[in-house]
Design a protein around this nucleic acid. Structure first.
Lengths: 337, 337
DNA sequence: GGAATATACGGCAATATTGCCGTATTGTTA
DNA sequence: TAACAATACGGCAATATTGCCGTATATTCC
């Protein structure tokens, strides 16, 4: 298995820049190991020779090893995207920590996705959202709307736009954590649906390895077929995969039922303890759990041809600002006045 | 970077055994990716040819791909140690979930390590434990003792032994999770102490990659020098590394203070947001946190020449069964009667 | 201060990984 | 049913990784 060699070189440069002194290969190996990079000392030396050639490192002596050059430091600043890896995982954990929703009384803040559309497309958009929500491919049936100038989560609605807030699936992380259940968010992916049944993940991006929310990326890349999954029973929907300790299984079911009372849903499947779920292996002692993407209704709006600007993990919103989607259909003409 | 090729082959065999039908290389790649194994399709085919030669797989057709043979299934059963990887992480998460200790009122169950010694060594053992506890290289100053036939955590004390229960550092996971703070346990390691200051981790074992508690392994392997660290200011102590979301920093400090009220401690250092701690890099948006090993006092007992049988993560114990260590010194003669 | 030991290097070559592409099959569509 | 498209294969060779070991330095010890 081979990581890209410039990733390895970048990691080595990072180790040297964080050290105050020259390092030999075996010291660099130790530091890399703590970063999840597993290379042999000889390999590190092989890369160090390449970095020398690029002017990013220089040999102090055969005993003392190498140090980073000024050029090496500039190179790190230039390619600082590396340091941002994993930032979506931090956002997931931060927002999950900050939200305050309590399943017992249905009060508190939840995490939302915010999507901006042209007000002229509102009626069509609500119909599409309703279609997906009714079929069950979302995190329940609640939604928020905000007009230009207003604030929805962390988004201020720009002029000429209307904002739609849907419940983000990371809200489930926060809910479980508030109940003391540890949740490991593994990846966001595209789940294939055939004959109205979920089959397997056809694409996936690890939360730990991404600077963007995976589902947002897939939708922007026009890789979804949510409408088709609903209308024809065959398509591709957004979903994410988590692992939970098997011992918490009963409590998860209880929390799931309590969520439903408040119009929240989204858990598509929970696997058997230590067994694969949709061909995804789970660690021993854990269950896999697949949660539908809170952006599936928005993907459908986009598939229907509406221009949508999407922002996932877009901050917190008090749950009392969300109402059932179908009420926008009844009131939507009046709502816009 | 290269994982051992028999690990790759084993993972491929696992994917095929979990599938009900033949698979081609690119389908195997998808499944491997969900297991954290990143190989190219050509590489998978390279390994498949080797597995063919070993009789573990066979080509169904050039279009349909390969399936596992009966011999392949036997090979998986034979090398089932692979399936047990990660089991300590599940135990950490399970026990953290199950314990009920509440920092506000100091009531509930905590997670303990249990160590068995000869009753004749009790007095010496308590003195060593006291030495380490007073220096601060443990999870506070509380301890439990049980005589033969009694139960301590999940351990029934055998004849001719006396059991010592020390607070396990995973108790901190449970405490933080009960407060809604997600904690990532990264690894258990050996921390070098020089001139009475912690320097860096000289060895480490990832929780996710181990079937045994790393600290238990290091102690059993006689790799600690806890007594020396306390008596001479230079040595090697057990500690573990966690990541917490930066946003939870203030609350962690509050919880830390609340723990101290009840005689619980063990947090050695918390790093700056997104900054390395003791040369260990952390993900963006997280802080590193180093927690001392609950078994450090036991390591010292062992270093002092006492024969000790150690079991870490040895179940739950009601916190009211632990008393401050120094009380065993005062009462220990009477205690044994 | 000199010898021994520990740490680090790079040459050489074996082994592992993977890109490219022509060929072999199966599934789908007209 | 035949043609076409999709999926999978393995040959060939380039590139990456790493084991082995002799040599270059610094640190430590007597």
């Amino acid at each position: 298995m081979r990581m890209r060699s410039d990733e390895a070189k970048s990691a080595i440069l990072k180790v040297l820049s964080e050290s105050g002194k020259p390092l030999g290969a075996s010291q660099i190996v130790s530091a890399l190991l703590s970063m999840g990079v597993d290379l042999q000392p000889r390999t590190v030396r092989y890369y160090l020779l390449k970095l020398d050639a690029q002017g990013f490192t220089k040999l102090v002596s055969r005993r003392m090893g190498r140090e980073i050059t000024e050029r090496g430091r500039e190179e790190i600043s230039r390619t600082n995207a590396m340091a941002r890896m994993g930032i979506v995982a931090a956002k997931v954990d931060s927002l999950g920590y900050k939200m305050s929703f309590n399943v017992k009384d249905g009060k508190g803040t939840i995490i939302i996705n915010v999507s901006l559309i042209d007000p002229a497309d509102f009626r069509l958009a609500i119909k599409e959202i309703q279609l997906i929500v009714n079929y069950g491919f979302s995190i329940g049936g609640m939604m928020a709307v905000a007009q230009e100038g207003a604030k929805l989560g962390s988004v201020v609605v720009p002029e000429g736009s209307i904002a739609i807030g849907t419940v983000c699936s990371v809200t489930l992380n926060g809910i479980f954590q508030k109940e003391g259940i540890p949740v490991v968010s593994r990846f966001g992916g595209l789940l294939e649906i055939k004959d109205r049944k979920p089959i397997r993940f056809v694409n996936m991006i690890e939360y730990r390895g991404s600077t963007l929310d995976p589902l947002e990326v897939f939708i922007r890349a026009d890789m979804t077929r949510v409408r088709s999954a609903v209308l024809r029973g065959s398509g591709i929907v957004c979903a994410s995969f988590r692992e939970i300790p098997s011992v918490a299984l009963d409590q998860i079911r209880k929390v799931e039922r309590a969520m439903k009372v408040h119009g929240l849903g989204g858990i598509l499947a929970i696997g058997r303890p230590s067994q694969p779920l949709f061909d995804i292996s789970v660690s021993e002692g854990y269950c896999g759990m697949v949660v539908l993407g809170g952006l599936n209704p928005i993907a459908a709006v986009r598939e229907a041809g509406v221009r949508v600007s999407i922002q996932s993990l877009a901050g917190l919103l008090d749950f009392n600002r969300l109402i059932p989607v179908h009420k926008y259909l009844r009131h939507d003409t009046g709502y816009l006045e």
